[in-house]
C-alpha cells in the first residue's frame, strides 16, 4: 500500500489571473491547493489524484483581513492561526476565533486556511456553519469574471459546492453582527485533531433579554453544513424557555442526518447534536446584551 500520491504537476501562480488561467487550461484535471490540510491527505491515500496542483499560496491578493464599513473581508488564504491573531476579526465577530480554536490542532491551524475550510465542501469542516450563522458571502473569481455566493446557498452536498470548475474562492465577506450580539460554537469531538461528532454554531441578538434574531447552523450532522431555520424561528421572542426550547431542539434534530461512523451511531450523533444546539443557544444568550 502507500501513503504516496500519484504523480502530478505542480504550479505556483503569483496572481489570481494566472491561477484562473491555469485552472481554465487544465479544467477537471486541476485542483487548487490552499493549506493542503485536507487535499494532501486525500492525495496520499490516492482518493484524489489531480494531474495538476495549483498552489495559490503565493498570491498576495488572497491574504489579509480588513474591516470595510459594516463588513469584515477575509482573504481566502488567511490561515486559521492568522485569523485567531486578528483583533479586527475577533472584535467584529468573536465566534470566528472561538470556532477556529476548535479546528484540528495547532499544527493544522498554522497551515490550514479559512478559504480551504469553507470551499472544500467537507461537512466535517467547522467554518461553513459559522459562515452560515454570520450570513457571510463568498467572493469567487473565474474565467467568466467575479461573482458572489452566500454561504447559505453555497453548499450542495459532500464535496459538492456552488464553486464551478475553474473558479477560485478569493475572499469571505462577513456582515459584522451588531454590538452586543450573542454567539457560541459548541463542538463535541473525540480528541484534539478530530472532526466534530456533532457541532452547532449560534449567532443571535436580543431585545429586553429575549431573542430578536437568531441563526443556528450545524457541522457534520448532515451531508453538508446546514442552517436550522425552523429551530431558530421557534425561539424568536423567547429567552429559551421550555417548551419553545424543546421545540427548537426537536426542529434542529429533524434536519440532522449524520452518518453512523466511528464517532457513533446516527442516533447518538443526532442526540448530541441537539445537546450542542442547546448548549450553544444557552451560551449565546448569556453573552448577548440587549
Amino acid at each position: 500500500m502507500s501513503v504516496i500520491p500519484a504523480p502530478f504537476s505542480y504550479h505556483r501562480p503569483k496572481s489570481i489571473a494566472e491561477a484562473t488561467a491555469l485552472l481554465a487550461e487544465h479544467n477537471d484535471e486541476a485542483r487548487i491547493l490552499a493549506g493542503g490540510q485536507s487535499l494532501i491527505p486525500m492525495m496520499k491515500f490516492r482518493l484524489a489524484a489531480p494531474e495538476h496542483l495549483v498552489d495559490v499560496g503565493a498570491i498576495a491578493e488572497l491574504k489579509g483581513i480588513q474591516r470595510v464599513g459594516d463588513a469584515l473581508v477575509i482573504g481566502a488564504m488567511t490561515t486559521q492561526h492568522e485569523l485567531q491573531l486578528s483583533k479586527t476579526a475577533t472584535d467584529a465577530a468573536p465566534i470566528l476565533k472561538e470556532a477556529s480554536l476548535l479546528i484540528a490542532d495547532p499544527q493544522v491551524r498554522y497551515m490550514g486556511t479559512l478559504g480551504g475550510n469553507v470551499a472544500n465542501g467537507d461537512p466535517g469542516n467547522d467554518m461553513p456553519a459559522v459562515m452560515m450563522c454570520l450570513d457571510a458571502a463568498y467572493r469567487i473569481m473565474g474565467a467568466a469574471g467575479p461573482r458572489t455566493v452566500k454561504a447559505r446557498d453555497f453548499y450542495e452536498g459532500t464535496y459538492a459546492t456552488a464553486l464551478a470548475t475553474g473558479e477560485i474562492l478569493t475572499a469571505i465577506e462577513i456582515p459584522v453582527p451588531p454590538a452586543g450580539h450573542g454567539y457560541a460554537y459548541e463542538k463535541l469531538k473525540r480528541k484534539i485533531g478530530d472532526y466534530a461528532t456533532a457541532a452547532a454554531g449560534v449567532v443571535l441578538t436580543t431585545r429586553g433579554g429575549r431573542i430578536a434574531t437568531c441563526a443556528i447552523a450545524l457541522s457534520n450532522l448532515a451531508d453538508k453544513a446546514v442552517l436550522a431555520t425552523d429551530a431558530a424561528a421557534t425561539l424568536i421572542g423567547t429567552a429559551l424557555e421550555k417548551p419553545a426550547l424543546d421545540k427548537a431542539i426537536a426542529a434542529a434534530r429533524a434536519i440532522m442526518s449524520p452518518a453512523a461512523d466511528t464517532r457513533g451511531t446516527t442516533e447518538y450523533r443526532t442526540a448530541v447534536g441537539g445537546v450542542m444546539v442547546e448548549r450553544a443557544l444557552r451560551r449565546a444568550l448569556a453573552r448577548a446584551k440587549g
Partner: peptide, 16 residues
Amino acid sequence: HDYWRIWEVAKGLGLH
C-alpha cells in the same frame, strides 16, 4: 468506553 458507547448505556437505562 468511548463517548457514544457510554451514552448508549445511559440510554439503555432510560436516562434520556
